[in-house]
Nucleic acid binder design. Sequence first.
DNA 1: AATCGCGAACTTGTATACAATTGGCTTGAG
DNA 2: CTCAAGCCAATTGTATACAAGTTCGCGATT
Lengths: 216, 216
Amino acid sequence: MKAAQHAYNTLRASIIDGSYPPGTRVTEQEVAASAGVSRTPVREALQRLEAEGLLSFVPHQGAVVTSWSPRDAADIFELRAMLEGYVARLASARASDEDIAELRRLALQQSLEAEERSVGYLERIADLNSQFHQRLQLTAASARLQATLTTLSSVPLVLQTFRDYSNEDLTRSAHHHRELVEAIESRDGDWAAAVMCAHIMAARRAFNAKHQQPSA
Amino acid sequence: MKAAQHAYNTLRASIIDGSYPPGTRVTEQEVAASAGVSRTPVREALQRLEAEGLLSFVPHQGAVVTSWSPRDAADIFELRAMLEGYVARLASARASDEDIAELRRLALQQSLEAEERSVGYLERIADLNSQFHQRLQLTAASARLQATLTTLSSVPLVLQTFRDYSNEDLTRSAHHHRELVEAIESRDGDWAAAVMCAHIMAARRAFNAKHQQPSA
DNA sequence: AATCGCGAACTTGTATACAATTGGCTTGAG
DNA sequence: CTCAAGCCAATTGTATACAAGTTCGCGATT
């Protein structure tokens, strides 16, 4: 694999799984050593991660892992509700038969995993979920626009959602996806957008329940 | 100035002013020579421009200036209407007195320029417009989120808007901005969002009038 | 003991050299 | 005349070497 891609994957995984907590300083050499490549491709990886919002560059100090304020979190959920709702609406109008088939496959698989809960199911569900939303974006928008939307969905905030999910939340999430497929198949953009909105709002609630001070 | 920044500015200006039309292939050496720096900072500049959507990387071939399909254009205006409307709503709730004062200053200045139309007024108006929207985003969102929103506003599609504007359009645009200031000052989020939406829709109409085949 | 100043090490930023892969062009054969 | 195959050139991808700036620590001085 390309060295830059390798460095990107390595560092990104470390950030998302929590090995590099928010606020951590990340030096180029450190990443270079850890990925076994030179600093040149590492700089490329750092820049990509900065563009995606996972890192911030502090002048003359290097990169630090982005920390998200409660306000950031609230804004991001709000934004996602709007944008992904929009995506669901577009997808309802533009989905091909293959798109729908693939979305259904992903949704059903996720339902299965949510029921069985065999070892490693959380990771697999997170992956299926990402694939579902990504496929939806690909269905809705031209590739160009999809790249723009991706940046909003890749923040750890979103990716770690399932850590905060109860079993009930997991089942509900899978149900939402299957309902989305149905809405899209019947070309009902309003329905699809509403389901997606509910989907995100449910995620927000789970997030808030876990991360807000219990006093509030 | 930093070499990477210089390369970025140079290339970006060339893309926006049309020296590099969509579809043009951009090689690293070419940019390096034109900016008088080595390839290393150029790669950094190319990456940033790719993240902003002005360039696309074709595997093993380099970067090409992004070309936008009519569908892309339509989607982008739709998205901007949603997002900037959201931004206007947030700004209504969060703007400080200084924010409002600065927004008013920018809006009034733009009105003046739109009336006088002295030499170079189009460039100055474009700049004032960018500043206004950027300030609004800064007012509405945390700096972190603002960075995400920026990527959507920097596409040439948006920056070149004023080329398609008639004098009437220019006046209306300035009016919109002043109305926005008023809405925000009265903390009326609904009003602000609606005005912003109209603002974007007007831009879309001007764009479509110029770029769609006249037969339609 | 505390503070100011100097220096050294670390980190980023840039340049250059080298490797690898690809696309185009030329040349030859059918 | 056309098509295919191989070679060459161009371009990206990576590594390393070097320069400049900054921060932290140590020591000296008050």
